[in-house]
Structures are given as structure tokens and as C-alpha cells.
Design a protein around this nucleic acid. Sequence first.
DNA 1: GACTTGACAATCC
DNA 2: AGGATTGCCAAGT
Length: 108
Amino acid sequence: MKNNADFLEKVFAIVERIPRGKVTTYGAIANAIGMGKSARLVGWAMHQSFLCERDIPAHRVVNRAGLLTGKHHFGGENVMADLLRQEGIEVENDKIKDFRKHFWNPDF
DNA sequence: GACTTGACAATCC
DNA sequence: AGGATTGCCAAGT
């Protein structure tokens, strides 16, 4: 049944599919995978992505409020925000402006 | 082996 | 409208 491993694979696949300049939320990913009620697992998976060698653009994944919740985990204070700005996303006070506009729905 | 914590979210009061 | 509580799954202590 590959429960946990398959879950991780799905998360990685979705995050890697996020187009440049777009962002998504943990809940959206969880919902797309089928674990809709377990958004925390997505956050856990993202932490695994850092341990993994894969280039997971985790900076494109934020919480439902568009707040850069995981910026502290990028090894810097403004690293995540800066990355998003390079993508063309407007970030203000560690929060994505027009988050709804940049939101990418993980619709397969 | 049990309890607490965690990159969240939805609901209840 | 805003604060508090619960749900969910896995890992770390």
C-alpha cells in the first residue's frame, strides 16, 4: 500500500509541477492527493523535501493565507520571500500579495 | 510504548 | 468578527 511513500511522491510531483510565478497551499495539495483533511502532512512532506536531494520549490508552497510560514526553514529570514520575488510574485511582509491571483490549483 | 510537536485547515463558540 | 478547539498523520523525544 505504500501509504507514506506514495503520499510523499504525490506531494513532490505536485510541487514540482507548480509553474514559475505561481503558488499553492498545503490544503490544496492535500486535497488533490486525497488527504484533504491532513494539510499538516503536506508540511511534513515539505520538510522531507529539504532532506531529499530533489529540487522541490517549496518556496512556492504557502499556507492558505498566502503567508510564508516556512521561510524560517529555508536557512534564512528573507530567502523564501526573495525567491518568490524572483519568480515575479509580489511579497510583502513575508506574505504574498494578490495571493489569490498567483494561486495555482493542482488540477491534474 | 506513550506523549508531544509540527512548513495547516476547518469548525465552533 | 475574532479567538479557541478539534481533526489529521507521521516523526521525534
